[in-house]
């Protein structure tokens, strides 16, 4: 096994082009579990911790740029939380403080788990993912980026640079996550809702990928049912399909009550 530690984005992209089998590692909250439990033995690890270009966030023209290396703790800080409240609420549900200090938005996108907590809030904010390789950059919508459970469109020579999200003018949004205990859970089911001219909901852990559902404001009454019907949940070790569908209805109703004021 090799560990490569680039010091700049340019170097990182070059290394990724040279070693397309390299597994990027940023906060390590997913990759290290695979290593510690002998589930993966990648030939190369690409340590992105020293790539400054991937860090931080910025805001301009109703859009927010989130670097792939943005941590959940950073997403909870007041200034960013004001711009993206659902993402901040989602971040507060992630693991314990230790995980929030290390886990990143880019990691959530790269892993593309159906339970990824950042994905529903990003979906309702129209997130576009910026990808790069030595050949150049491209932008894909988050909906297109996620193609299946733990699968995305990232090419083997590409890295995730970050996402652009639309904060909206009068956007009201919230995030909720159901788990069998009151902290540190993988979502049994999760939901982000945004009301801003129309209704948008995105759920997690209720289908192979996090999915966006939209409706007109006038359809608020039927929206909980529509969201539940858009889901394709399964029974697994964390919960049942019927519960997930039921919970989505309740969560959507409650989320609308919070956002339609």
């Amino acid at each position: 096994m090799d560990v490569l530690t680039p010091r700049s984005l340019e170097e990182a992209l070059r290394l990724k082009a040279e070693r397309p089998d390299a597994v990027p590692i940023q906060g390590g909250t997913d990759v290290m579990v695979e290593l510690n439990f002998d589930r993966a033995r990648p030939a190369v690890l690409l340590n992105l911790n020293e790539v400054a270009e991937l860090r931080g966030w910025s805001q301009a023209d109703g859009k927010v740029w989130l670097g792939a290396g943005l941590t959940y703790s950073e997403a909870m800080e007041p200034k960013l939380a004001e711009a993206l409240p659902a993402l901040a609420e989602a971040s507060r549900t992630v693991g314990g403080p230790q995980i929030r200090n290390r886990g990143t938005i880019g990691g959530n996108l790269g892993t593309a788990s159906p339970a990824g907590d950042a994905l529903p809030p990003l979906l309702v904010c129209g997130a576009e993912v910026k990808l790069a390789s030595v050949l150049g950059e491209r932008v894909v919508s988050l909906e297109e980026f996620l193609v299946g459970p733990k699968r995305n469109v990232l090419a083997e020579d590409e890295l995730i640079l970050g996402v652009t999200v639309d904060t909206g003018d009068e956007s009201r949004q919230t995030f909720m996550k159901v788990g069998p205990r009151n902290a540190m859970v993988i979502a049994v089911v999760s939901l982000a809702v945004r009301v801003d001219g129309d209704l948008r909901a995105a759920f997690g852990s209720a289908g192979p990928v996090s999915k966006l559902v939209r409706a007109e404001l006038a359809d608020a009454d039927s929206f909980p049912q529509r969201v539940a019907e858009a889901a394709s949940p399964i029974d697994d070790v964390r919960g049942t399909a019927s519960y997930r569908r039921h919970a989505l209805r309740i969560l959507t109703k409650r989320a609308l009550d919070r956002c339609l004021v």
């Binding site: 530690t5 590692i25 390590g28 290290m32 579990v33 690890l45 340590n47 200090n101 290390r102």
Partner: peptide
């Protein structure tokens, strides 16, 4: 738990080389 550059982290999820 340890502090890495003053930030609380789980040392099990940090690659030693990082």
């Amino acid at each position: 738990s340890v502090l890495l550059d003053g930030t609380l982290v789980c040392s099990c999820l940090v690659l030693a080389a990082q």
